[in-house]
Amino acid sequence: MKAPLFDYVNATSLDQALGLLDQYGEEARIIAGGQSLMATLNMRLSQPQVLIDINSIQGLSGVRETRKDIRIGALTRHMELLESDIVKEHLPLIASAMPHVAHVAIRNRGTIGGSLSMADPAAELPACCVALDATFELSSRSGQRVVKARDFFSGLYTTERQDNEILTQITIPKCAPQQLHYFEEINRRQGDFAIVGLACTAAVKKGLMSSKRSLKALDVVIFGCEDKPTRLAQTCLHLIGTSIDKNTITAAKQKLEQELNPTANLEGRADTKLHLATVLLERALLSLARDIGTID
């Protein structure tokens, strides 16, 4: 199939793009990297009246460091994140996720803002942003507002972004020196969307009287299961304060089975996904336990 008829504007400033969004509302689509939108246009799953190209807008891309945070422009390509030394140093979870984000030719054009706005439930970057408690800056003609990643994803391909808004910047707190992380996904082909994936961060506390160390903080996010990235709040609550061993891992897997409610799709049945999620949780906890030193 071929894309439907639409008009096209190559916006040269954010003001121009926001003005067009105000004018056309839901009849407009923003095109950044276009790596999902172009496919939906070619399949006529999307039929906008006008396509607003934001690739020529200056100042929307790049990774920069502030004292506490890393700020990522929404137009930053996946390849830039993959190659960024700032990301490697301060956002190790994102650095471990990037090799799983699509294939090289897609990474060269696809953008972080596009991936987050698309909100594919099996995508890596939304899950990482939820795990890392990122905040998103949304711009419109009436100004800017900030939404936490944990509130941004509202359902299947659905976010809190309004039709007149553009996601312009992603802010992620720098990884603390003692912070641990783990990322893994299961898929049929390297670079494809995950059947099931897991992104997590953890912090460790040293015992006062002994060298035994326990989990001070833990955030586990599962993706590819529900209609948006799922924070396993109950499972994590159960694990915080413990030092990870075989028994706590078994208990955590049972908690996960109660907490996670996967939806079947072409990638797998619900019970398959639930099983794979417990496998990933076990691998994540074993890896953290090795980092902490409670399991060899």
């Binding site: 190559n10 095109i31 276009g34 790596q35 172009m38 496919a39 090289v104 030719a105 897609i106 060269n108």
Partner: peptide, 14 residues
């Protein structure tokens, strides 16, 4: 850089 030419509009090659 490599790119998918089906996921890019001709007008974007300008």
């Amino acid at each position: 850089r490599s790119a998918r030419s089906c996921l890019m509009l001709a007008v974007q090659a300008d």
